[in-house]
């Protein structure tokens, strides 16, 4: 599956037609806390990570917030 992840073209190693955000994190080995996630510009909250899906060609943003300021 080819998506735009954080403004970069990304090929995901999967045979599935659609993937959830939780599956993306597993595939990419993301284990960060405090993420802001969007699919095609729409916010995906933490309790929607299992139920929010994206497909080939979609734009996914995963912004990792860290402390300091």
């Amino acid at each position: 599956m080819n998506i735009t992840l954080n403004n970069r073209e990304e090929t995901l190693d999967t045979n599935k037609e659609i993937l959830s955000i939780a599956e993306l994190f597993e595939l990419k080995k993301f284990s960060f806390k405090n993420l802001v996630v969007k699919i095609n510009g729409t916010l995906v909250k933490r309790d929607e990570y299992q139920s929010a899906y994206f497909k080939n060609g979609d734009k996914v943003d995963v912004i990792h917030m860290i402390s300091g300021g």
Partner: peptide, 14 residues
């Protein structure tokens, strides 16, 4: 300064 507050405001505004 805190990551959880940054997440909270960005999610709220979005």
């Amino acid at each position: 300064d805190k990551a959880e507050m940054k997440q909270m405001i960005v999610e709220t505004v979005s």
